[in-house]
């Protein structure tokens, strides 16, 4: 049995997530990844914004910071610059990271700030009752899109790659063990690492879109996910409507807090 107890704040349970919610699966994958990466729990700072995903830090025994809606990455950037020795992990959701906090998300990726950002993408604003988010697929329903969304959606991973992230991976709550491995790689990466985890929201996303239960949604992930290596050999037509999982992008770039420390050193030297 994996030693989850070591990481949990039992006095904060029961958690607030709905029956069938995927947040707990991502939380457990994150804990397994942290254990696997051998990073001591006291050197981790877990930062979140607002939303269902952002309740995660309340339940776990790290240095935790629960911030305002959309600003987790901005707070985390400050944290990293002040204490570069900390391992920064940000947990966020699709609404938190790509709507209200979209600006911080792209700029942290552009600067390549060393942090691991785990985005729980459930395609909806779950906490406030199922409003359409930037990742609600075109044509899908939400409480603010009763006839189906007319807005094209964001590809979170694609956005991170385009903005300059050094590591980008995607998986789903069905592929929980893969999720651990991807988060582990993200944690060990020096630079901005994004892991997009598709999570079922049976309460607000499945219902209006008639996607069935959480089990049905997990089954859908199972049947419609394609490993990135295989997807690369497929035509655009064949890839349509599928979830491409695995490491989508992995590159080496100069990291922002390193550059910042270098600059400080250089300027101090000059003054003397």
């Amino acid at each position: 049995m994996f030693p989850y107890e070591h990481y949990l704040r039992y006095d904060k349970f029961p958690h607030i997530w709905c029956t069938g919610c995927g947040c707990g699966i991502v939380l457990k994958a994150m804990l397994r990844a942290i254990e696997r990466s051998k990073i001591s729990k006291n050197s981790i700072a877990l930062v979140s914004g607002i939303g269902c995903s952002s309740r995660t830090p309340g339940y776990v025994d790290f240095n935790t910071l629960h911030t305002t809606h959309g600003r987790a990455i901005a707070f985390a950037t400050g944290l990293k610059l002040a204490k570069p020795e900390l391992k920064i992990v940000v947990v966020s959701g699709d609404g938190d990271a790509t709507a209200i906090g979209g600006n911080h998300f792209i700029h942290a990726a552009r600067r390549n700030v060393d942090m691991t950002v785990i985005i729980y993408n459930n395609h909806i604003y779950g906490m406030t009752g199922g409003q359409a988010s930037p990742t609600t697929p075109l044509g899908n329903r939400a409480s603010t899109a009763p006839y189906g969304s007319i807005e094209p959606s964001f590809d979170i991973s694609g956005l991170a790659i385009a903005a300059g992230a050094s590591f980008v991976a995607r998986s789903t709550c069905y592929h929980a063990t893969q999720l651990d491995k991807l988060i582990t790689r993200g944690l060990l990466k020096r630079g901005f690492a994004l892991i997009e985890a598709l999570t079922p929201c049976p309460t607000y996303y499945a219902r209006p879109n008639r996607l069935g239960t959480s089990v049905d949604m997990l089954r859908w992930y199972k049947d419609n996910s394609i490993a990135v290596e295989r997807a690369r050999k497929m035509s655009e037509e064949e890839r349509r409507g599928k979830v491409i999982i695995g490491v989508l992008h992995d590159t080496e770039r100069t990291e922002f807090s390193d550059e910042y420390q270098k600059l400080i050193k250089k300027m101090k030297g000059k003054r003397r």
Binding site: H69, Y125, M127, T128, G129, Q131, S143, T144, P146, Y147
Partner: peptide
């Protein structure tokens, strides 16, 4: 949306719908 005011506009959006 924001708790606990979401409902006001949520209900209103259904009037729009």
């Amino acid at each position: 949306p924001i708790t606990p005011a979401t409902e006001v506009v949520q209900l209103f959006s259904s009037f729009v719908h």
